[in-house]
């Protein structure tokens, strides 16, 4: 019985885990496969034939590439804003002592614990009350995206900062580096990987958001909004091309980062 229990513990759990991973990857396989689909009709649900056309001319789908460009523009701006504001806040929360630090900590968690539909509708209520219902567009989307990316940046940078050994900075000070030099030559380089992963997270959150954006976009169409609109008419295969490119790009970035970390750890 104990031997059986041990075998179960050793192999069964691993097998179940891998099966769950398969469940998680199943849609990705479908997206990659369907990016090569030559659909027989707009409403087709099956793989009707192989073609390179979708990859050769992804912008043939009217309006799609414009929406991707808009999402990239918003994503980069929101990432810049949220990363700067969030990093400053993370430093304040980990490195500084002030009245109200504990409530400030809880405060940063609130947006992560609110359903998107509530945040989206409350922002819309604010914009409408402020008489901005005619001006919904790029700027209102950007304001919303910086807001919901902020918490994730703060949490990510905070984790990196909290793991930093304060003695390294003390050593720098002992070696006559002033506070400014210590920060830029010691602290910042050590925290930078955390800031970088926070920025990546912020970009992917912004690029992918639909629920909040949809409520506050006015006439603008971001990529997720384009996908939503297209899904009501029948899914064009070019959408899967963009999905595959996004997947491969992000995977490459993360694997390169992982390899880099491994190489540095070995040194």
């Amino acid at each position: 019985m104990t031997r059986l229990g041990k075998w179960i513990g050793d192999h069964l759990i691993l097998a179940i885990g891998l099966a769950v991973l398969f469940y998680m990857f199943l849609p990705i396989f479908v997206v990659i496969l369907m990016s090569f689909n030559d659909p027989a009709s707009k409403q087709s649900y099956s793989f009707d034939g192989f073609t390179w056309d979708n990859w050769a001319n992804p912008c043939d789908e009217f309006g799609m590439c414009e929406s991707v460009l808009l999402s990239i523009k918003i994503g980069l701006s929101a990432t810049l804003g949220a990363t700067i504001l969030g990093t400053l806040m993370a430093f304040a929360l980990v490195r500084h002592r002030f009245r109200g630090r504990a409530p400030a900590n809880v405060f940063t968690f609130l947006p992560m614990a609110s359903p998107e539909i509530v945040m989206g509708s409350s922002l819309l209520a604010l914009f409408v009350s402020a008489g901005l219902s005619g001006q919904l567009g790029f700027w209102t989307i950007l304001v919303a995206h910086i807001m919901f990316c902020l918490s994730f940046v703060v949490v990510t940078v905070k984790a990196r900062l909290a793991g930093l050994d304060p003695r390294i900075e003390q050593a720098a000070m002992d070696l006559y580096a002033n506070e400014w030099q210590t920060f830029w030559r010691v602290t910042f380089p050590l925290v930078f990987p955390g800031i970088l992963s926070a920025a990546l997270l912020a970009f992917s959150l912004s690029f992918d958001d639909f629920i909040i954006t949809n409520l506050n976009a006015g006439q603008e169409v971001t990529f997720p909004m384009f996908v939503w609109g297209a899904s009501l008419r029948g899914i064009p295969p070019q959408i899967n091309v963009i999905g595959t490119i996004m997947f491969l790009l992000a995977l490459t970035l993360v694997l390169v980062g992982e390899l880099g970390a491994r190489r540095r750890a070995r040194r």
Binding site: I28, P224, G243, F247, L251
Partner: peptide, 8 residues
Amino acid sequence: APFFTSFL
């Protein structure tokens, strides 16, 4: 990794 591509 699956989350590198869009939710929708």
